[in-house]
Design a protein around this nucleic acid. Structure first.
Lengths: 346, 346
DNA sequence: CTGAAAGCGCTTACAG
DNA sequence: CTGAAAGCGCTTACAG
C-alpha cells in the first residue's frame, strides 16, 4: 500500500472496466485515444466506459501511465544558477518566462531541478553521481555552463535536451537555441561602415567561449575586408589611459564591447581623460545588459529576444522528444538592434 | 520500448544487481535507505552495488519508484497565476524564492504545474477532470484561490498539500502557513492606542475571506474594549467626500486599510478636500504592497516575511509527506511592523 | 544478511 | 471490435 493511498484506495482502471463490463485495455483506449491504435472501441462500450468513469470519479494515474511507456509531459529545467533569482532583474529570468509560456501552450509541466544544492556556487547535472533528469521527458539547460564534462556525459546518455546558447562538445552533437551573434555583429559593423567608420575595435572577455567566437566571426566577416579591424580580449579593469591612447593612435573611431562591463569601464577611463562617448569615440554593446534593462538604455546595442528564445527551446525539445530519431536541432535566433545614443556618424 | 529509450536501453536496477552479484532488492535498499527496512545490506555488498552504480551510470527511475510506492522527492507547486510573472515585482514571487530555498535544503525538486493553461484567467487543479499532482509527493498551493470546490476535492483525495494563506473548507482540514494577521492587527491597534488614538476605523475588501476575518478579529480583539472601533467594507472607488465627512464626524483619528488600494484612494480623496496624511488623519496599511515594495515605502504598515513563509511551507509539507498519519498542520507566521510616516501621535 | 516474487496502475503487442 | 497477458522499473512483505 503506497503512502498516499492509505486513506482510501485509488479508483483504478480495473474498477472502471469492471463496472463497464469491459477489459482495462478498452478503458485505456478510451482515456488516451491515439491515431493508429491497435485497439478500437465500439460506440456502445465507450459510452459505458465514460459513464463508469464519471460514476466512480476516475482519474488516470499519470505516474503509471508514464511507467507503461506513455509520455510524462514533463519538461525538466536545469539552471546553473538559482531558478528564482533573488535579484529579480536577473538576465536569465526572461528565458524562464518564455519557457513557462511554451510549456503552457504545449501542455507540459515544468520540473525544476532544485534538489542539487547550490552549495559550491553552481549546480551540477550529476549531483553525487546520479541524474534526476530521467523523470522528465527531456530538459532545457539554462545558464552560462562551463561544464563540458557534464554536458558530454548527459549527451552520452541519449537523454533529450536543449541548451539555451550554443554549446559544442567533442564527440557529440547538442541541440540548442542560441542568439545569432554572428549576423548581429556583422550587421553592426555594416552600420558603422555606413556611418563613415573605417577602423573598429572589438573588446571582450578573455575567456573565449562559443558566444565570443560567434561575435568575433561576425566582426571579421569577409565582407568587412576593406575595414581596419582590431580585436582585443582584455579584462575591463585593465582598460587604462595608455590603452586608450593606443586606441586613438590606431585611428579607431568605434569600439564594439562584448559586455556592458567593458563599455562602462571604457567610458569611465575616457572621462578621466576628459573624453566622452560618442563625441570622441563611438561604442556599441554586443550583448543585452546583464541585469536591469534600464541600466543599458542609452547604449547603442544588440537586443536578445529572451522570452521568445525560451518558448522556442520548449518547442525544439518537444520536437526531439516526439521524434527520437531526430538529428540535433540548432536554432539561431535573430537579434535586434537598438539605436541608443552612443554611436555617431563621422 | 518507451520512446525515450529508443537510443539506448535505460540502465536499470537489475543491471546494477547483476554486475554487483546481488538481487534488485539489495540495490533498492542501497539507493533508498530507510529507518526500519525489512532488508539489510552488508557493507561489502553495498560497496559493490555503489561501484556498479557509478560504473553503469545508474540513476533510479523516479517514476517507477513512485509507482512502487517510494518517495519521489518532488514537490508540486501550484499557482493560480503564472509561476513566472512577467511583472517581476509580483507579490507572490518572494514566496517562490523561499520555496526554492526550502526545496534545496531538503533535497527536493520542484514541479510546476504549467500544463493547465491560464486560458480562462486562472488555472484549475483538475483540468479536464484529471489531476496531474499525483506525480509529486505533495504540493504547495499559492495564490488567492477562491476555488473551495477544487480545494475540497483535492482534500478528499488524501493527497498531501499545504496552502500559503489560511484556507478553511467544510468537512475537511487543510494544512497551511499563513500570515498572522490577527496578532499583527491587534498589535497595530495597541500601538495606536499608545499614541493617543481612541477611535479607529478598519476599511477593507467587501469580499470577506479568511485573511479579512483574521484582520477583523485582531481589530475587535476584546482587549480593545475601551476603544471606539468601526469597520467598513467598501470598494476603494466608493470612498468620497461624504464618506470622509462621516469619518470625521465619528471622531475617527486613524484608519486601518486592508489594502493599499484603500489607502491610496483615501489619500486621494483627502487631498481633494485639502486634507493630508498624517496631519489630519493617520493611516496604517494592513498588508504588504501587492507589487513593488518601494511603492509602499512611506506607509506605516504590516510586513510579511514571504520568503520565510515559502521555506516554511516546504518544511511543513515534507513533514506531512513523511508522516502520513499526521494531523493537518497550521502555522501562523508572525508579521513585522514598519513605522513609516503615516501614523502620528495625537 | 539476501533472494524470489508479487504488485503499483497503466499501455501495448498479440490473439481471438 | 475486444480480452488476456506481458511488461515498464521500482519497493516491499515474505521466505530463507
Amino acid at each position: 500500500m503506497t503512502i498516499r493511498h492509505r486513506r482510501s484506495r485509488r479508483v483504478t482502471q480495473s474498477d472502471v472496466a469492471a463496472m463497464a463490463g469491459v477489459s482495462t485495455a478498452v478503458v485505456s483506449a478510451v482515456i488516451s485515444p491515439k491515431p493508429n491504435k491497435t485497439i478500437r472501441v465500439g460506440e456502445d462500450a465507450e459510452k459505458r466506459v465514460r459513464a463508469a468513469m464519471v460514476e466512480l470519479g476516475y482519474a488516470p494515474d499519470v505516474v503509471a501511465q508514464s511507467l507503461a511507456g506513455g509520455q510524462r509531459n514533463i519538461i525538466g529545467v536545469f539552471t546553473y544558477e538559482a531558478v528564482f533569482p533573488s535579484d529579480r532583474r536577473n538576465f536569465f529570468y526572461p528565458f524562464l518566462l518564455g519557457i513557462e509560456r511554451g510549456a503552457m501552450k504545449l501542455g507540459q509541466d515544468l520540473l525544476l531541478f532544485t534538489s542539487s544544492t547550490l552549495e559550491k556556487g553552481r549546480r551540477s547535472i550529476f549531483p553525487k553521481g546520479t541524474n534526476r533528469m530521467g523523470i522528465a521527458d527531456g530538459a532545457i539547460l539554462l545558464g552560462a555552463s562551463q561544464d563540458k564534462d557534464d554536458l558530454k556525459r548527459l549527451c552520452d546518455t541519449g537523454f533529450p535536451f536543449v541548451t539555451i546558447g550554443r554549446r559544442e562538445i567533442e564527440g557529440g552533437q547538442i541541440s540548442w537555441v542560441a542568439p545569432d551573434y554572428e549576423n548581429a555583429v556583422s550587421d553592426v559593423v555594416a552600420r558603422c561602415r555606413t556611418m563613415g567608420h573605417r577602423a573598429m575595435m572589438l573588446i571582450g572577455e578573455e575567456d573565449v567561449r562559443e558566444q565570443n567566437q560567434d561575435r568575433e566571426r561576425g566582426f571579421v566577416d569577409r565582407e568587412h575586408g576593406d575595414l581596419n579591424l582590431f580585436v582585443d580580449r582584455i579584462a575591463p579593469e585593465r582598460i587604462n589611459p595608455a590603452w586608450i591612447r593606443a586606441l586613438f593612435e590606431n585611428g579607431v573611431t568605434v569600439v564594439l564591447a562584448e559586455t556592458f562591463a567593458h563599455a562602462v569601464a571604457l567610458e569611465r577611463e575616457l572621462a578621466a581623460l576628459g573624453l566622452s562617448i560618442p563625441d570622441d569615440i563611438s561604442v556599441v554593446a554586443l550583448a543585452a545588459p546583464l541585469f536591469d534593462e534600464a541600466e543599458g538604455e542609452r547604449w547603442t546595442r544588440i537586443s536578445i529576444p529572451r522570452e521568445e528564445m525560451g518558448e522556442r527551446a520548449v518547442e525544439t525539445l518537444i520536437a526531439i522528444v516526439r521524434e527520437p530519431g531526430k538529428m540535433p536541432d540548432n536554432i539561431m535566433q535573430p537579434l535586434g538592434y537598438v539605436p541608443g545614443e552612443t554611436l555617431k556618424a563621422i
